[in-house]
Computed example of a mutant assay.
Amino acid sequence: MRFSGVPAILFACLAVAGCTSSSGIDDILAQKPSLETTSSVARPASPVPTADVVIEAQAEEVLAWAGPVPTPEALVPQTRVTGMPVPAEKPVAMLTPPKPTVRTRSPVRAQIYSRQFRDAKPINFGKASPKRLAVHGVDVSRWQGEIDWAKLRTQGANFAYIKATDGGDHLDPMFKKNWRAAHEAGLKRGAYHFFYWCRVASEQADWFIRNVPRVPGALPPVIDVEYNGESSCKRRLSPQKIREKMQVFMDRLERHYGQRPIIYTAPDFYRDNLQGAFLDYPFWLRSVAAHPSKVYPGRKWIFWQYSGSGLSQGVNGKIDLNVFHGSEDQWHDWADARSS
């Protein structure tokens, strides 16, 4: 369904209603943080690039400047996109052109490298092994330090999700370098945001938009939602409030990037907050001990993070390993659709 014009006042009301939340006694739960932590939240033993990281605070903060925040009027029209964005309607020509344009698939497609990764803590997934799937990739953050992206690609990293932002004012100090270098090495790249429950959702979306370019061929943006015992934000919201904040954030990104965001999550957070929700959104699931079908019954997924202890040439220390849910041809079709 397409909406041609939503009054600015209604847009503002929706943003305020969806992204402002208060947590009462009933909203604060007693769950312990998950042991299913990713490299984006777990500090490794090896040295990493230093950077000044601002501690997340409850009070109002001034955002670091990284360019103007797009106004609602400057964003793509408010169209709920399912899959790829629908182009605006154009008048039908009265006469057929003598040489109509024919859209053809590009004969050249990026090479898919087979998986050469090792694992510090290998798991036997049996017949459901991720090794049976064709297209593998990685996700990285500052904790991986300097990466030889060309070497990493030949080891089986055909795509990479790169940590960009978290909260409303944190930028991963390696994001710009990783974003550029991954592309130069020929990897399909996407960016992810670690969501903070103590910050306003629209504020976090604006921060991500300021720092992550909108470029053809980029993979859909990702919202990373999980428990993090190392965070300064200890708030535990109700499932309803969590879903409201996520929806505000994802709607804002979808309007700007023209792609529906992917939801990354871990088993305990999913169990407590996301079962049966967001059925029309793609999911990226962390499951390092069993196939996702056993950990997330009935949930469809597009990416599976099957290891947090991967080892590879081109990177020092451990790295998260992922796989695409499909064949090589399905990967190319899915990725090519995001290049148009």
Rank of each mutant, 00 (worst) to 15 (best):
H332Q: 14
H325S: 14
A201D: 02
S327H: 11
F324D: 07
L285W: 02
K318G: 03
A335C: 04
G326E: 10
G308L: 07
Q240C: 07
Y281A: 09
H256F: 14
P297W: 02
A205N: 00
P261D: 03
R255P: 05
N316Q: 14
V295D: 05
G258T: 06
S309A: 12
Y296G: 02
E244Y: 08
C233A: 01
Y296R: 03
I263Q: 06
A335P: 01
W207H: 14
Y270F: 15
P221D: 03
I242S: 01
D320M: 10
G310N: 08
W284V: 04
Q330W: 05
L321M: 09
D320N: 11
V222G: 02
W331Y: 15
I242D: 01
A205V: 00
S309Q: 13
V323T: 13
F283Y: 12
W304I: 05
A289Q: 15
S309L: 06
P261H: 02
C198G: 11
F303V: 04
S340W: 07
V323M: 11
V248P: 06
S231W: 00
D224Y: 00
I223S: 02
P221F: 01
Q275M: 11
Y281M: 10
I242L: 09
V295W: 01
F208N: 04
R271Y: 07
R243F: 02
